[in-house]
Each structure stands twice: as structure tokens, then as C-alpha cells.
């Protein structure tokens, strides 16, 4: 126990542990904000994993071809949107089961990215950092938050933008109603499945950005295990957060921090069991669900397909 407290103290005072915590949390947040929008509209979108991976690989290809971060970002978003559109068309036009489609997509993208990576082997390097004056001088967290690639800074406006989209625009009102009661939304003249598809595209965009960030700003090169199941941790963060944006982001920060121990603890000279750290977010989610199960409410029609005329 004493060792644990000591380790925690070391982590809290080490600047580099904040850097890795922020990079993990930010990557989760890219996935989680999009997933949150999709889930509020009624899709439990498990292809988030595939979208992140597709985004990461396409970003690497984009960088290999043009050496431009902006073009890489567009490549990443484009590829994630392709995955998103398959998910959206299959589950909300053809009414295929969204989990089956999501699972298939995750496996497909993993295989395809591994294959193409072997064939094409895109050359990449880590993006340079952009230092924000003054803010980056904040002790401990300054470097982690404000002395990074501009790809990280995308998440800062993205979070309030998604909040505004869902709570302050007509599109968001309609998307929420579609996630709660699609029959009522339909009777009110809202295109239920169109809104659901659009919400999945939002997830595609944020995941494309997240994949690009992961590949070019965090790791610096592509490998097919780069996402490594963290898409599912994003989904867990949304559930942990009780389908509120604030809660989802809090979940990302918590999970990101816990996962970052895998890097920061050995760096500080502590021995840890990797498996335990990797499974921690899921254990925390289960604990969170058990504690808050009565207080949180999932969107009523979450993961229920909508077909006209069946009540």
C-alpha cells in the first residue's frame, strides 16, 4: 500500500506522466465525442474501432504521399467516413443488425490495414509540436496540454462543437428525438434513419481526426495494432459517462490516465502487470455501471432499429 501511494505521488509530480495521460485521454476523446453523438441518435456504434484504425492508416498514407499534415488529416477523415458510411447504410438503410455490421467492419478494417501496410509501408514521422506561449508554461500540465502537435488541439474545439450540435441546433434536437422515440420523431416528420446515418458520419469525422492524431502525433508510424481495442474503451467512456458529454469526457480522462500508467509507471521505475492496467477501464466501467445504474438513462431507442409502421 505504501508503495502504491508513493507511486501515485511520483506520477502526480512527473511532467512526462501528464504528457502520456493527456495523449491517451485525447485519443479516447476523439472516439468518444463521435460515439456520443451516434449513440444519442440511437446507434450503439461499435465500428468506432475500425473507423479509428482506418483513419490512422489513411493518415499515414496521406503523409507518405504529400508530407502534409492537413492532407493527411483529410485522408484520415475520408477513410473513417468510408467505414462510417458502410455502417450507416447497412444498419440504417438496409436494416442489417448494427452489431454484426460493426463487428464485421472492425475485422475487415484490421485485416485490410495490416495487408495494405505490408504492401505499401507508408513512410511517416512524428509531427512537430506547436508551442502555445504562456499556457505551455503552466507547471506540470502545461507541456502536456499546450506544447503538442496541432492535431491534439483539434479536440479542444471539437468537444464544445459536438455539445452545441446536439443541444443547440435543430439537427441535434431531431437526432436526440430519434434516439429516444423514433416512432414519435417519424410522426413529427423527421427522417429517422437519415438522422441516424448522419450521426454516424459525425462519428466518422471525429474518428478520422482521432486516427490521424494517434498515427502522426502520438506514435509517429503506422502498425495494425496501433488502436488496439481502445475504440471499445471510447464506447465504455460514453456508457460510463451516462450518455452525457461531460461524463463521457470525464470517462476518457479517467480511462486515459489509468491506461497511461502502463507507460508512466515503468518509466518511473515501478513494476506493473500490463494486463491489469489494460483491463482497468473496463473494470471501472462495470463498477461505474453498478454504482450509477439507477441514475443514468441510456437513450430509449439505443441500438433498436427503426422500421416504419411497427410500434
Amino acid at each position: 500500500m505504501g508503495g502504491f501511494v508513493e507511486a501515485l505521488g511520483d506520477i502526480l509530480t512527473s511532467e512526462s506522466s501528464y504528457v502520456s495521460a493527456v495523449s491517451f485521454a485525447a485519443f479516447l476523446a476523439f472516439g468518444a465525442v463521435g460515439e456520443w453523438v451516434a449513440e444519442r441518435a440511437g446507434t450503439l456504434n461499435i465500428s468506432i474501432e475500425g473507423m479509428l484504425l482506418a483513419g490512422a492508416f489513411a493518415a499515414a498514407m496521406g503523409f507518405d504521399l504529400t508530407s502534409s499534415l492537413l492532407v493527411s488529416l483529410l485522408f484520415g477523415i475520408g477513410a473513417a467516413l468510408m467505414v462510417a458510411s458502410v455502417q450507416a447504410q447497412m444498419s440504417h438503410r438496409l436494416q442489417a443488425d448494427q452489431f454484426v455490421v460493426g463487428l464485421a467492419l472492425n475485422i475487415l478494417v484490421l485485416g485490410l490495414a495490416g495487408f495494405l501496410d505490408g504492401e505499401l509501408d507508408p513512410a511517416t514521422r512524428r509531427a512537430p509540436t506547436v508551442t502555445i506561449p504562456l499556457l505551455s508554461d503552466i507547471p506540470l500540465v502545461g507541456r502536456a496540454l499546450f506544447d503538442q502537435s496541432w492535431l491534439l488541439y483539434l479536440i479542444y474545439p471539437l468537444i464544445p462543437a459536438c455539445w452545441w450540435l446536439v443541444y443547440r441546433t435543430r439537427w441535434g434536437l431531431e437526432a436526440r428525438s430519434v434516439g429516444e422515440n423514433p416512432q414519435s420523431a417519424d410522426a413529427s416528420g423527421i427522417h429517422v434513419n437519415r438522422r441516424r446515418r448522419q450521426a454516424i458520419y459525425v462519428a466518422g469525422i471525429t474518428c478520422g481526426a482521432g486516427g490521424t492524431y494517434l498515427c502522426l502525433a502520438v506514435v509517429g508510424s503506422f502498425e495494425d495494432s496501433i488502436v488496439g481495442g481502445r475504440g471499445f474503451i471510447s464506447i465504455a467512456a460514453v456508457i460510463f459517462g451516462g450518455w452525457t458529454l461531460r461524463g463521457s469526457i470525464a470517462g476518457c480522462v479517467l480511462f486515459g490516465t489509468v491506461v497511461s500508467f502502463r507507460l508512466s509507471l515503468p518509466a518511473l521505475g515501478y513494476q506493473i502487470n500490463n494486463q491489469i492496467v489494460t483491463s482497468a477501464p473496463f473494470l471501472l466501467t462495470i463498477a461505474g455501471m453498478a454504482l450509477f445504474a439507477k441514475r443514468v438513462r441510456a437513450p430509449d431507442a439505443l441500438s433498436r432499429p427503426f422500421v416504419r409502421g411497427i410500434r
Binding site: T169, R170, E174, S177, E180, S184, A187, D300
Partner: peptide, 27 residues
């Protein structure tokens, strides 16, 4: 306009949000 038998309302939304549902234009 139709007032539905099983209401076309969304329980989780407020009264005014429900009234705004299905309207075109900015919110």
C-alpha cells in the same frame, strides 16, 4: 395536422423541444 392516438411526443425532451420537433429552419 394530426393529433396522434399514441402521442408523437418524446418523453425525454421538454415541452418546448417537443413542440419544435419536425419544424424546418433554425432552432
Amino acid at each position: 395536422g394530426m393529433v396522434h392516438q399514441h402521442f408523437s411526443l418524446v418523453d425525454a425532451l421538454s415541452v418546448w423541444e417537443n413542440v419544435a420537433l419536425g419544424e424546418p429552419g433554425r432552432l
